[in-house]
Design a protein around this nucleic acid. Structure first.
Lengths: 333, 333
DNA sequence: GTGAAAGCGCTAACAG
DNA sequence: CTGTTAGCGCTTTCAC
């Protein structure tokens, strides 16, 4: 039989109220003697306070839902780690939810998290989510959106990265370096980061006097297979290009494979730039020039913002746009 | 104000017991009419059952703790994904805990998980954990150890990989291929997988008639930096070798860098084999020959075993040893 | 300094 | 078919 606060109270010959106060450090007015006695018994019995019971009263579970597409996608582990670090610093724990970018799964997880009475949710919306769902609309716990914003969701906060300027800087750099025909291998056009990166790409081209006809975007998803296929297609169709700006590093890696297979020499004949700077980027050969996202920081900041809101119960909308950094390696001249 | 089961009962003009039955599908004997009425009101009000309250009675939280060293370590995301998939299939959720291989953090997380009344724990012990701690000894919820076993912990279950045969097969393959001086760049000698891989390495050497003096092990940790440094050291000391069996892929990647820097041609002058088959292994150049661990499956099986135990409340010890597979790529002849 | 009592939202007999 | 009742283990006034 599990030992409860009652048992401790009985054994220490005090009331359960006293034990409760001691456990929760609300023991300013409890004598040192009593305190010691209680702690001694707690240690002896191996008593573990039942936080489920206290949650009923305090109305907080000290749990946060982390809803992401897929922890096995190399972008997310660091994000998750950042979030978990901040959460645990503040006494919260994280519930991991993988949605596979599936709107139905997202809704199911959100419902589950609500039932489990999490104090808040960190949410990276599906790139397929076009509109906000009913379940999301009526949710009454704080949600911070991470990386991808959702049109229509009045998330109480938002941490994103400056995708436009990240893409812009990358393409500008390529153009500066003398690449003249820079194409873009993008992710799914429905997702917000994709849209923004496309915008940055266009902006740079425009600035260099290119016309709409020079804007060449090949949509895919954010996988290396997709990058490989897009690149093959471009080559096979004989489309002229000497620069490839990729929606993420995985696409870039796929593109690099296709380029190599087709005998195109990187970075001399073709320059390639990725996005994300997953740890892989510096381990492949040639090392990938890429736009680095502060992944750990994104997770950390998001958790920080959420917890801040939880503590101050402010309903103000907060947002922060983190900076990217162009990391120049060996796939560009 | 949040709507509770009481409100639903009042509005539907039934007792809360009836509502509870309907919510929990224990409504065999509730009239369809009543059921419909209740569901209608639930939908209208946006009522969300409070699982914290029901957990108090049912004594289960449908939560599982996942305690791993670091989700940002490329070995774990897939493991976590496997575990989360099985857990969510069965209606459980996973609480993510990163211990950084730090015994104190492990203990703190275990304590937290107990307080949160998780139904069970999936535990990958620190490679630094030499002995079982007090907190672990008295724990009374099911623990399954994943990947690394802990001496002294009577975990109720265990899912591991056959590290000995994995290492043995790899080294045997190298020897078969004509490499004659195979050294081993290992992880920390305190961790169980390290010990077992060393054992497999030795076994293969012995079988080929090598003496103790030919067993050359350089201990490091499981990072690419460690692999790089060990490899540099070996080269600088003029130790003769033509094969490098690495404790994991990260070590192998570091070793590959050092080899390249020193002008050693892989796989002709030196063969390299890794362990784990993280997705990176097939993306680097040359692609890494490595011992593949069924990472996703490990996570999935562990969750499966844990949940099975939870359902049958058997205290039998279960264990399963998963097979590795040697993936031959381009770093060996 | 300490305790009594009320109650968090829900489930599980058991009774009708 | 449905309701009554008795808690689950804990926190929090408020009284002493």
């Amino acid at each position: 039989m599990k030992v409860t606060i009652k048992d401790i109270a009985r054994m220490a010959d005090v009331s359960i109220a006293t034990v409760s106060k001691v456990i929760n450090k609300k023991d300013a007015k409890i004598s040192q003697e009593t305190r010691d006695r209680i702690f001694k018994i707690i240690k002896e019995t191996g008593y573990v306070p039942n936080r489920v019971a206290s949650s009923m009263i305090t109305k907080e579970t000290k749990s946060i839902g982390l809803v992401i597409p897929n922890i096995a996608n190399p972008f997310f582990p660091e994000v998750a780690r950042g979030a978990e670090d901040k959460a645990s610093e503040e006494g919260y724990s994280l519930i991991l939810c993988n949605t596979d970018d599936d709107v139905a799964k997202e809704d199911a997880y959100i419902a589950m998290l609500q039932e489990k009475m999490v104090d808040g949710i960190i949410f990276t919306a599906s790139s397929r989510r076009l509109k906000i769902s009913e379940s999301l609309k009526h949710i009454n716990i704080p949600i911070i959106s991470l990386d991808r914003e959702i049109e229509g969701l009045k998330a109480q906060g938002k941490i994103t990265v400056d995708n436009i300027s990240g893409a812009y800087e990358a393409v500008k750099y390529m153009l500066d370096k003398g690449y003249t025909k820079v194409i873009h291998l993008s992710g799914p056009a429905t997702s917000m980061p994709t849209k923004l990166r496309i915008e940055g790409y266009k902006k740079a081209l425009e600035e260099f006097g290119y016309k709409d006809a020079d804007v060449l975007i090949f949509e895919g998803d954010y996988t290396s297979e997709s990058g490989y296929e897009s690149m093959e297609k471009v080559i096979n169709q004989g489309i002229p290009f000497d620069g490839v700006f990729c929606g993420n590093d995985l696409i870039a890696i796929g593109a690099l494979k296709a380029l190599k297979k087709n005998g195109k020499i990187v970075p001399y004949e073709v320059g390639v730039v990725g996005f994300d700077d997953i740890y892989l980027a510096s381990m492949i050969e040639p090392e990938l020039t890429t736009v680095s996202q502060p992944k750990y920081l994104m997770g950390y900041k998001t958790a920080e913002l959420l917890i801040k809101m939880l503590n101050h119960s402010k309903i103000e909308t907060h947002e922060e746009v983190l900076k990217t950094e162009l990391i120049i390696r060996d796939t560009t001249k």
